[in-house]
Design a protein around this nucleic acid. Structure first.
Lengths: 133, 133
DNA sequence: GCATGGAGCGGGTATATACCCGCGGTTCGA
DNA sequence: TCGAACCGCGGGTATATACCCGCTCCATGC
């Protein structure tokens, strides 16, 4: 039972490797792919609470909270209050909009590279398989 | 360009989700899939140095060092010296062998579950795609 | 009104992961 | 033989990620 067939370990490896592709492309912006993606989600859903955002991106709420705080320190995201005093509402700061705009073509580039390397059919398979897990 | 087609983010999500399947199965042993897999690799290659192990599992050396230290604290792995005084040589402790033995059927179970859910053809596709990334 | 339960969050703790730096041990050339 | 280059590691730092706990705030039943 060779260890190199462990679906989990293979997924992790692929995940690390592919993350690094995106990270490298985004280096000029000073954000990594996790941060860029979170920024995109906040932009798409803003204003949104931590809990709702966590549910959307399927991460633990505390994880999203910590990640959002890093973005806040970078000046890309504003964390305010909702009507409910308990809610932390997230919105994109002006500098965050700039990053989103500058990052879009960089992100597209990596995305296209991967799809070119895999081909259309395998790209489709990949999306399908990842969704099925 | 919907964010939910980002190969990287989908991979990460799948990776987290699938990791949790294995982690749950291994709960009785008190180790997670990362630790169990590392244990298997050490067992397969022992005695092996940190640097060589890191190269085998395609992780940063310092990461492997820290992970190995956790396994050492658990009493599953012994960290000794090689002939070269600089080398940290890893071997499996008796308790580690026990974990490997008890874990094997649990690991097989998850592996089988996943393959059953995907089917043989898609399982093959998955392995192929992950290797191609 | 007020108490109680539930919801939202922050922080503590632990692992996972990477990069960089400095220390110390090895080796090899002058 | 002895210094320089090189190699292996540990530790510092930062993010990513999850779980749990406690605090605060809200809403509902009485």
């Amino acid at each position: 039972m060779p260890n190199d067939t462990c679906h989990c370990i293979l997924l992790r490896k692929a995940s690390r490797k592919v993350s690094s592709y995106y990270d490298e492309a985004l280096v000029p912006l000073g954000v990594n792919i996790g941060q860029f993606s979170l920024l995109r989600n906040i932009n798409r859903l803003a204003p949104i609470s931590l809990t709702d955002l966590a549910s959307q991106v399927e991460l633990d709420r505390s994880t999203v909270g910590r990640n959002a705080k890093v973005l806040e320190r970078m000046g890309l995201v504003a964390i305010g209050h909702g009507e409910d005093q308990r809610e932390a509402m997230l919105t994109i700061a002006p500098q965050g909009h700039a990053i989103l705009k500058q990052g879009a073509p960089l992100w597209d580039g990596v995305q296209d590279d991967i799809e070119a390397r895999l081909g259309a059919e395998k790209t489709r398979q990949l999306q399908e398989l990842l969704a099925a897990l």
